[in-house]
Amino acid sequence: MAITAKPKKTSVIEKPESKEIDEKKAIAFINQGGSVASHTATSEAEEDEKQKGVIVRMYPDMIQEIDDLLKKLPKRNRPSRNAWILKAVEEKLKREKKNHK
């Protein structure tokens, strides 16, 4: 492994000639103030309504089968693969609820 010298700085930041601070401008800036960061408390119901990401691992054959089914649908009524999978999960949940009552 080759060792190289530390790169040299190519630009120098120029400092202002006057170090005096305009006190009136500084006070005006301070008096502008700002707002305190607010933290909005969310209820558990609101948290439950948010979508959560889940990684689903599927066999390539199954994905291809889903894609083939989707290609047969008319373009304007064709859902995305994700929407189709969500609908399938919802249907499965409804069936399971009926079976366990």
Rank of each mutant, 00 (worst) to 15 (best):
E90V: 01
Y59N: 08
I13T: 15
K19R: 14
E23Y: 11
I21Q: 03
G53A: 14
I27W: 02
K25Y: 04
E17H: 06
P7H: 07
H100Y: 10
L69N: 01
H39K: 10
E14W: 04
A41G: 07
K9T: 12
E47Q: 10
A88D: 00
S35C: 09
S35D: 14
V36W: 07
G34R: 03
K97P: 00
S43K: 02
R95Y: 05
R76F: 05
E49G: 08
K71R: 15
K52W: 03
E17I: 10
D48T: 03
N31H: 14
T42E: 04
N77M: 05
E14Y: 11
I63Y: 00
Y59E: 07
V12W: 13
K92E: 06
I55L: 11
D22Q: 12
S38M: 13
A37W: 07
K75T: 13
H100S: 14
M1L: 09
R57A: 10
G34V: 07
I21D: 00
K50V: 01
D67V: 04
P16T: 12
L73T: 03
R95T: 09
Q64V: 02
R57M: 11
T4F: 12
K97Q: 11
I85C: 06
K72L: 10
D68S: 15
K75L: 14
N82S: 14
